[in-house]
Design a protein around this nucleic acid. Sequence first.
DNA 1: TATCATTTTGAGACAGTTTATCAATTTCAA
DNA 2: TTGAAATTGATAAACTGTCTCAAAATGATA
Lengths: 144, 144
Amino acid sequence: MANTHVKEMQALKEHLGKHQLKLTRQRELILNAFLRQEHITAEAMYHQLAKADPHLGLATIYRTLNLFCDAGLAQARHFGSQTKYDNVAHKGHHDHLICTGCEKIVEFENEEIERLQEEVAARNGFTIKTHRLELYGLCSRCRH
Amino acid sequence: MANTHVKEMQALKEHLGKHQLKLTRQRELILNAFLRQEHITAEAMYHQLAKADPHLGLATIYRTLNLFCDAGLAQARHFGSQTKYDNVAHKGHHDHLICTGCEKIVEFENEEIERLQEEVAARNGFTIKTHRLELYGLCSRCRH
DNA sequence: TATCATTTTGAGACAGTTTATCAATTTCAA
DNA sequence: TTGAAATTGATAAACTGTCTCAAAATGATA
C-alpha cells in the first residue's frame, strides 16, 4: 500500500508513542483511507474498507477514528443523528453550508468572518482555539 | 391553565390550520411548558411534565417538539448524543463562546457576521434557515 | 529471533436516543 | 351529534455508538 501521507503517519506515531499505544495494520489502513476523505462517517468507512479487509470490525473503525481525534488528525462533528469525522489536514479549516432538504454539504471559508470571530472573542477575553460554523438552509434545487 | 403565550399559540394554530393538523390538549400543554424554557431535551420535558400529566407519552413529546420545529417555534440542535430543542422566541439568535477550560458559555450576537453568512449562502445558492456558530477557546481566567 | 507483558482486534451484546406501529381516543367540520 | 381524519399512549423496533472478552498482534527486551 502506498504510503502517501508521511506527515500524518508521523503525527500518529508520535501520539501513539506518547501514550503507549501500538501501530497496527488496521490503524495504518484506516489512516490511509481516512486521509483520502474530506469527511466521512464511521459507517461509510466501514463499508468502504470492507473490500480491503472484510473482517475489519465497525468497533475498530470507531475506536480508531476517535484515536485520530485525540491525535489531532480528525475532528468529530455531529450532523443530525450521525457523527462525521473531518480530515483536519485536508484543509486548514472550513465551515459548512448544509442543505436540510437533500443533506448536501458545501464547504466554505471566509476570512472576514474568521476575523470578526477573533474580534468577538477578544472583546470577551477569550482566545479561540477552534470553532464551528454551520449554516442550515435549502440549496437552490431543494427550494422548490 | 394560564395562557401567557398568546403569540406563539397563534403561530402554532396557524401552522396546524395550514397542514390539516389538530390542536390537542397535549400540544397546548407541551407548548406552554416549552415556552418557559430556553432549551430543553425531550427526555427532560418528559420528566418535567410527568406531574401535570402522568400518562403523557415520550413519543408524543418528540412528535410535538418536532412539530414545533416545523412551525418555526423551536429549533433542534444536536449536542453529542442528545438533541436539544431551543426556544426560538425566547431570544432571537445567539451564538456561543465556549471556554474549553471551565466550560463557561458566553452568548453573543454579531450582525456583521450574520450579514456575511447570508452573503456566503447567497453566493452558493442557499437560503439560510438557521445557523450555529460556536467558538471554542480559553477565557481570560483559564488562559493561565 | 524468541519471549512475553501489554495492547488491540473482531464479533456481538448492550445502552441510549429517537422513530414506527397500531388500536383506542380525540378533534372538528358539517 | 356524527363520523372521517388526526392524535395519542404504550411499546416494539431502529439506529448509532460503546463495552466485553477471548484470541491475536505488537514491540520492548533478552
